[in-house]
Design a protein around this nucleic acid. Structure first.
Length: 510
RNA sequence: GCCCCGUUCGUCUAGAGGCCUAGGACGCUAGAUUUUCAUUCUAGAAACCAGGGGUUCGAAUCCCCUACGGGGUACCA
């Protein structure tokens, strides 16, 4: 009796994939895998005017990066293809005709201009126009016209659309897996266009026909579809497909971090976080939008972030692998209200994954950044640097900020530290330390550490006084990892030169 | 305007009538660790559960109203 779980992600290739769309896909994927079902990708490109070249490829690449695999669909294959609606174009007419035959739909010949005028007329009277059971009798369609008139128009190739004929006084009940029962009265619903004058179906028709033909068991989609769900339910009824109608689940929307409204591309750019999985360049305006991948987020982190934005496991665990998510995911635990994206928490998630990443992997990426900056280093050296500064970073890109002193001598010295720590006898003390370091043949963290410490003890000096100034001369600032780790990595020669430069520079030109 | 959905710390959320003087996480503050900064650890502040009415011995949890937020209202998806 129970049908095999088959769910789909059905984006429209009108641009890069929005992060909210990624979350929708993720929930579909988790649900499918949890139940041993299929997850398919269907491209909904019925609006030819909004087609954006490259968008389809972008979508496929994005999921590839995220590690979310489709079982079938566009670019993958499968038994229910084609999976691009424009390639399925010829079949939709047949279904639209079927609805005309059974009187669930009708031809409408009103031109867009005519409808515009009607709308304006209504507005004048402060009323709202809707093409529905109350107004259709007064408009130009196969319901108001005689059979002969309709046929003549059809024979003359008059442009027409096919509209759904909503029955009067019918209560439509939707059983939403997240929201429970949602009721709507058919009198308030308008006769949506199912088939456009350009020979393409609208979303509503194509969606229902394809979901049926592709044996979709559950429709998990954004909340923006809830208002048109009654139409979809009625379409299943009209086609006589009620017994295999998928179950619906309408997801809450992703909201912008501050203020109100849906998360949009603009917000990301303004607030400094990506709204798209991958970087995207608009083919026409050439404007680029940042992506999670390019910003340094790990796919695992993005999945983790998205999974917890509108869903929770009911436990206190927050870091999940994809496998764990599949295991624990349930639609029942999806929340009903919209979720605001939180940049700080997103960074924290990435930080967690960053710490788990092996040093050599990070070092490889780090070497690329170094190369861009004009530095060549061995993988071994890069790996050591990474191991020293990794825990204070959330992204590979941050490694440089924490480690530039390994490659660049300080050009300036932090004035605050100078003021606080640089005393009259500091140059002399540093000179003595330089001599001691110079005398060490086995230049290691242990030997240098011990040498400097015993020097401080022997002269009864203050630890902070010496160490901070020594750090200042090496790094130029009062921060960074263990000083002896640093001097050993840059080597004796470099260390001594930096100390000498500091002695000569600091306090001289003020 | 009309229709639909929603409303617990700043944010993501736990909570399915008594376990709630509302728990966790991010962020924030303080302390500890450190030669320093960061990390880490510990502690703390932070929601009269949108407001108002009911129902009940008892409500964040059930019902109603209001407010606010969101979505929809295209030959877009």
């Amino acid at each position: 009796m129970e049908r095999k779980v088959r769910v789909r992600f059905a984006p429209s290739p009108t641009g890069p994939l929005h992060i909210g769309g990624v979350r929708t896909a993720l929930y579909n994927y988790l649900f499918a895998k949890k139940h041993g079902g299929d997850f398919l990708l269907r491209i909904e490109d019925t609006d030819q005017t909004r087609f954006v070249p490259g968008a389809e490829e972008y979508i496929i690449e994005a999921f590839d990066w995220l590690g979310i695999k489709f079982d079938e669909g566009q670019g993958i294959g499968g038994d229910y293809g084609p999976y691009r609606q424009s390639d399925r174009k010829p079949m939709y007419k047949e279904y639209a005709d079927k609805l005309i035959e059974t009187c669930w739909a009708y031809y409408a010949f009103d031109s867009p201009e005519e409808l515009d005028n009607v709308r304006k007329e209504f507005e004048k009277e402060k009323k709202n126009f809707q093409y529905d059971c109350n107004t259709r009798a007064a408009l130009k369609n196969s319901l108001s016209l005689s059979k002969e008139e309709t046929n003549t128009l059809l024979e003359n190739n008059t442009p027409y659309v096919i509209r759904f004929k909503f029955p009067k006084d019918t209560e439509i009940i939707i059983h939403d897996l997240i929201r429970g029962e949602v009721r709507m009265n058919s009198n308030l619903l308008d006769d949506k266009v199912l088939y456009k004058s350009d020979g393409m179906p609208t979303y509503h028709l194509a969606n229902i026909v394809d979901d049926h033909l592709m044996k979709i068991s559950h429709v998990i989609r954004g909340e923006e579809w809830l208002p048109s769900c009654p139409l979809h339910v009625m379409l299943y009824k009209a086609f006589g497909w009620e017994d295999t109608m998928p179950k619906f689940a309408h997801l809450p929307l992703l909201l912008k971090p501050e203020g109100n409204g849906k998360l949009s591309k603009r917000d990301g750019d303004r607030l400094g976080f990506p709204v798209f999985p991958l970087e995207w360049q608009d083919p026409i305006s050439k404007e680029t939008s940042s992506g999670y991948r390019e910003t340094g987020y790990f796919p695992e982190a993005v999945i983790n972030i998205l999974a917890l934005l509108g869903w929770n496991s009911g436990t206190e665990q927050e870091i999940f692998t994809l496998e764990e998510l599949i295991d624990i995911f349930t639609i029942e635990r999806i929340s009903k209200s919209g979720a605001k994206f939180d940049l700080e928490k997103a960074k924290w998630f990435n930080h967690q994954y960053f710490q788990l990443m092996p040093n050599d992997k990070i070092a490889e990426e780090y070497l690329k950044i170094l190369k861009e900056k004009g530095f060549n280093a061995s993988l071994e050296f890069a790996e050591k640097v990474v191991s020293l500064v990794k825990e204070r970073c959330s992204f590979v890109q941050e490694i440089w900020d924490q480690s530039s002193f390994f490659f660049l001598r300080p050009e300036t010295y932090d004035q605050k530290i100078i003021k606080k720590r640089w005393k009259e006898d500091t140059p002399q003390r540093l000179g003595e330390i330089a001599d001691i370091l110079n005398s060490i043949t086995d230049f290691s963290v242990e030997t240098t550490d011990q040498a400097v410490h015993s020097f401080i003890e022997k002269n009864e000096l203050n630890m902070g006084q010496i160490m901070n100034c020594l750090r200042l001369s090496i790094v130029g600032e009062g921060k960074g990892p263990n000083l002896f780790e640093i001097i050993c990595l840059i080597g004796k020669e470099e260390t001594l030169e930096r100390i000498n430069t500091a002695i000569e520079t600091i306090g001289k030109n003020e």
